[in-house]
Amino acid sequence: MSNPLDIDPAFTTEVLVRFLREELASAGFSRALVGLSGGIDSAVSLALAARAFGPDEVLGVMMPYRTSNPDSEAHARLVARELHVPTRRVDISAMVDGYLDQESVPSGMRRGNVMARMRMVVLYDLSEEWRGLVIGTSNKTEMLLGYSTLWGDSAHAVNPLGDLYKHQVYQLARHLEIPTEVVDKPPSADLFEGQTDEDELGFSYAEADRLLYPMIDERHTEDELVGSGFDRDFIRLVAGRIVRNQYKRVMPVIAKLSHRTINQDFRYLRDWKS
């Protein structure tokens, strides 16, 4: 049976490769860097960037913390090796612990967020040295659910995956021949031992995608979704997450005082030229 989320992966790849080339060229760049977690999203972003700019023009950056799962780095290296992309390893343990110890940050979400933001600091610093732009790895499913760290993994210059649900990222990964070890393992932010995205969210990406597509892309109402067989509590749980996390998907709000305010009535694309 056909799945309404299915994409044509070859054509999608062609669009995304051109997107990367043209949007970076528009900003005056032809080199890129990708933070590699060892997971499927960053593997797909890296593969697209390697096709867009050539493997030598792309840097894969691994940023392990001392408690990170060693498989994460091994998988990141495997992906980069298969794509012939150079890598850089920056251990973030000292910089993270320097802050965590000084401020006695308790374990859990706060520590995870600090790690994600330290990785952002590293990537943006290396982007200067590499003279390239940071390519995003956030997909539409996690962006809608708000499953990201604001100004952490959500910080990047351009994002080829932001309009692809997780299901579609899997399709793209198979088309791009990402190693099966990476494609088949349970998605994890690897911020603490044994963490998986789906445990933390309380539902699977496949379940989320099945609901998100009619809810967001087709704009079905709650009653229509219940009529299609979705559980009302699940619909409300997901809808609540989407609304609650809107702030992560937009720039900070600005108090309007003048007659012409940035992003309100001062309206230009980022690709603005004159």
């Binding site: 043209e22 949007e23 694309l269 690709d271």
Partner: peptide, 8 residues
């Protein structure tokens, strides 16, 4: 053809 702010 081409892109403007991500739109193809």
């Amino acid at each position: 053809v081409g892109f403007e702010d991500g739109v193809a």
